[in-house]
């Protein structure tokens, strides 16, 4: 394995009652990378995560965390992992603080100061001594993140972490994961919220029926440039502009609108179209480029 990968999943297969749930999945997460796991419900995201954290046995293959195989030395491998699997189920009859103490006791070397530090980090200082049953879903989610971070893991695994968070909370989480990534902590995050993944992740694996069908890098700008975006031009003379551009560039996918026209363009082509319109003295009120989102790509791939 390469030194830079924190998590390596190698040809993992899982069968339940002779039905293949996970089929030969392989991927790796690099140090400081936010890796997204994207797929429709029942695709096998949670099953894969359950195998990584040892809740389910591996059918075939192996999972290596920081150089340690989970099937050979589970306890050592888990030292570098903090996780939330599906909902963060806490002991409701205990306070948030007692919950953290509980998990802190399971790993040597977590001080009281660290518990308070993590509490502060998730902004729950005021309510930490309340019973968890009085917490909102968002607060429970944050407490879940706190317990995952207690022992300063190098790999954070979050299954559907944005569930129950309000938009501000989601943004906070995203910023926080980015900050952790800058400190060298890797995150594996699963979601079916495509737009969220697009904003959060460096790479996204698209999983369908137990197989990874595509891995997309979201940071790689060259790939972005290749993509054709839908560009809407709002002009004073839609018909004239439409004809000029159609004649000059021979674009096939072009549509006339009431107050302008829309066409598929690569990024660097936009100024050229703009120039041609200006030359013909057409007034341009706005140019709107809507990037083909991960959502479109995802639906294309999975349907």
């Amino acid at each position: 394995m390469t030194q830079s990968s924190v998590l390596e999943v190698k040809n993992v297969t899982k069968k339940i009652n002779n039905k293949t749930i996970i089929d030969q999945i392989s991927f790796s997460v690099n140090r400081g990378e936010i890796y997204g796991f994207l797929g429709p419900n029942g695709a096998g995201k949670t099953t894969t995560i359950r195998m990584i954290v040892g809740l389910m046995s591996l059918g075939e293959g192996d999972i290596i965390i920081n150089g340690t195989s989970i099937s050979k030395n589970f306890e050592k491998a888990m030292h570098s992992v903090g996780a939330i699997v599906e909902n963060p189920e806490m002991y409701k009859f205990l306070s948030g603080y007692q919950n953290l103490v509980h998990y802190a006791r399971m790993i040597p070397g977590i001080s009281k100061a660290r518990i308070l530090e993590v509490t502060k980090l998730i902004g729950l200082e005021d309510r930490i001594h309340d019973k968890v049953k009085r917490y909102s879903l968002g607060m429970r989610q944050r407490l879940g993140i706190a317990q995952a971070l207690l022992h300063k893991p190098s790999l954070l695994i979050l299954d559907e972490p944005t569930n129950g968070l309000d938009p501000a909370g989601i943004r906070e989480l995203r910023d926080y994961l980015r900050q952790l990534a800058n400190e060298g902590i890797s995150t594996l995050v699963s979601s079916h919220l495509l737009s969220e993944m697009e904003l959060m992740c460096d790479r996204v694996a698209i999983i369908k029926e137990g197989k990874i069908i595509d891995v997309k890098s979201l940071k790689d700008s060259s790939e972005h440039r290749e993509l054709q975006n839908k560009v809407i031009f709002e002009v004073n003379q839609p018909k004239k502009g439409f004809d000029i551009i159609k004649e000059k560039f021979e674009y096939k996918e072009m549509k006339l609108l009431e107050n302008g026209f829309v066409l598929l363009l690569k990024r660097e082509e936009i100024p050229k179209v703009n120039q041609s319109l200006v030359k013909e003295e057409i007034l341009i009120y706005s140019i709107n480029s809507t990037s083909k989102s991960l959502e479109d790509q995802f639906l294309e791939l999975t349907n």
Binding site: V53, G54, F74, M78, V81, V85, E89, M90, Y103
Partner: peptide
């Protein structure tokens, strides 16, 4: 459901 939280420790 807390068993999940319990078993993912070292």
């Amino acid at each position: 459901g807390t068993i999940k939280m319990l078993l993912i420790r070292p």
